[in-house]
Simulated assay, not measured.
Amino acid sequence: MTDYVVTKTQREALQRLIKIAQGDTGQARRVADFLLAWWNAGECGGFDITTAWGVDTSIAADMVEVFGLAVARNAYPDEYGFGPDFERIVAAWRPALLKGGA
């Protein structure tokens, strides 16, 4: 990990994406797939970049911002205090991964 500082823009983009991923639309599913690939690609699945073709331009811009954060910082989202948010996304979109899940 580096001494990289999370910018306000990156934090706000991540917060917007988390909020979207907690919805139940096609775009929410795409955003959840993107975020969960960062959280744990081995368990949650990877992210096909062409999936981003199905999101609004503003959402895609937030995805680019968060991708930049993940690459620059070499850290998982829980290091920013977003672990509980990602756990809720897992519960919504990957319930089988939870203990006792189907």
Rank of each mutant, 00 (worst) to 15 (best):
L97I: 01
R16K: 13
L17Q: 04
A52Q: 03
G26C: 08
D56Q: 12
T7K: 01
D56S: 14
I49L: 15
D85P: 03
G68E: 08
V55M: 01
E12N: 12
G81M: 03
D33I: 07
F34S: 05
F82K: 11
G83M: 06
D33Q: 14
D24T: 14
T51V: 12
R88S: 05
R29T: 06
N74R: 15
E65I: 04
W39K: 00
E12C: 02
T51E: 09
A60K: 14
R88E: 06
R94F: 00
T2R: 10
G23R: 03
G26Y: 09
V90R: 03
V64D: 11
I20G: 04
A72Q: 13
I59M: 06
R94H: 02
C44S: 01
A13Q: 09
A61Q: 11
L36S: 04
K19Y: 09
A60S: 11
D48G: 11
A28G: 06
W38G: 15
Q10S: 00
W39Y: 15
G42H: 05
Q15K: 14
N40F: 11
K19H: 07
A60F: 13
N40E: 15
Y80D: 06
M1L: 05
I20K: 02
F86W: 09
M1K: 03
F34Y: 11
Y80L: 10
A13D: 07
W38P: 08
P77C: 10
G100M: 01
W93H: 09
W39G: 07
D56I: 12
R29L: 07
E43C: 10
A96N: 13
A92C: 05
D3W: 09
A102N: 12
V31R: 00
I49T: 13
V5Y: 07
D48M: 11
P95E: 02
T50A: 12
V6L: 07
A70V: 10
K8I: 10
A32Y: 02
L17N: 00
A60L: 15
G83K: 00
L98Y: 02
W93I: 06
D24H: 13
E79F: 06
G68Y: 05
D48C: 13
